[in-house]
Design a protein around this nucleic acid. Sequence first.
DNA 1: ACGAAAATTTGATAAATGTCCAGTATTTGT
DNA 2: ACAAATACTGGACATTTATCAAATTTTCGT
Lengths: 222, 222
Amino acid sequence: MAEALTELARPRPGIYSRGSETVDSILKAALSVLIDEGAAAFTIRRIAAACGMKVGNVSYHFPRKEMLVQVLLDEIVTNYDVKLEMQVRQPNLSAEERLRLVIKICLDDICGKRTTRLFTELWALANHNDFIADRVRAFYGKVHEVIGEYVSAINPRLSKEEVATVALFISASMEGTTPFLGYQKPWAGDMPAITAISTEWFVRLAKSLEPGEIALMTRRLT
Amino acid sequence: MAEALTELARPRPGIYSRGSETVDSILKAALSVLIDEGAAAFTIRRIAAACGMKVGNVSYHFPRKEMLVQVLLDEIVTNYDVKLEMQVRQPNLSAEERLRLVIKICLDDICGKRTTRLFTELWALANHNDFIADRVRAFYGKVHEVIGEYVSAINPRLSKEEVATVALFISASMEGTTPFLGYQKPWAGDMPAITAISTEWFVRLAKSLEPGEIALMTRRLT
DNA sequence: ACGAAAATTTGATAAATGTCCAGTATTTGT
DNA sequence: ACAAATACTGGACATTTATCAAATTTTCGT
């Protein structure tokens, strides 16, 4: 089931302005269908219906369904990247305040319908679609970098690897709330308390971890 | 898309022993297909092929595909429940050691192909299938109970709600490793370190949290 | 070993899917 | 305003899907 990571995802089919708008409509509708109805309903016909278009036209702009998936995912990931950068790069904040902010931003975002639905679907799709797996990995790599930057600023004695591990731990812990406390999930009401614990304890972890301590703990465990 | 939570999931069609074995084969094959090929390949035909059977026979034992899904999920959840109970109820351990053990068991389990693949699929399916959402919720409810039991033993001053919140935090944090550090996931190699941090810091959280502190932190955050 | 119940095979059904193409309409540079 | 490039329509195509029913084989209490 190895996907072709090559030149499948062309820039954009549209050249005339009308075509460009149509492509936008299709992508928007495709995202809506994925979020509102799930991957099983992610069908050329449903997408066409969702943006009031004929099947043939969608097929004209995206001759292969896989193209649509790839262009859509690239757009989604880019949007998240931009949003993350914009929201996080606030001036006049200490490293600790920045880390708190990032944690709050991530958890607030997870509460939204879009993120809750989209990423649970992507995690599943990544199991058997190498392209999706690759993009999801790249996206979270950036998230880890941002978190790691602040962890490193809070605790400069930590090595690069230790910072990466702490960032991974914080990120994974936060993302884990998605299927449980995300949009309309069973424990969604507990998100404020979990956010509070997260900000407090992840900052505490970043502050108080000693260089070499992770290796020590790991060795002790096995 | 509201599912009928009623009497769809009959006990078992099989009456003759051969039929029983066939049903078992079907369920086993269905799980294999879901894990090895994903929800998109979860098809009567693929399942039939996976257990060397004719499509009509699978259809005879499970006249509706949704029946197969429901019986399969019930069996899966029951198996996990039993496994959890067995592994966790070790004698001669302190509450703290038990909590460490539960954390280690959960994270080790997440590393396996079965759990990594299965639960990412279930989280996605739960978005639009009420039956699956219900069973997944029930399962994690039990996990939280087990964790909460030990948290409560470690820190008896915490209220029931506080214990539940801490258990939810620990559980969600652990489950969050699935799409990142699970089977063949990008950061799978970091699981030992993450396990070490998890056991150490989740126990520390359970120990040191003061009654009323969660409410305080939550209020301070907003 | 007989016979009814259960299991299995075989083949068919309608519906839905991705892809394609001939023809028509629209857009855009000139 | 013209012509070429682009966009869109309508319909078709072969596959694949879940479900079903008649005919056959197997099972198992008697």
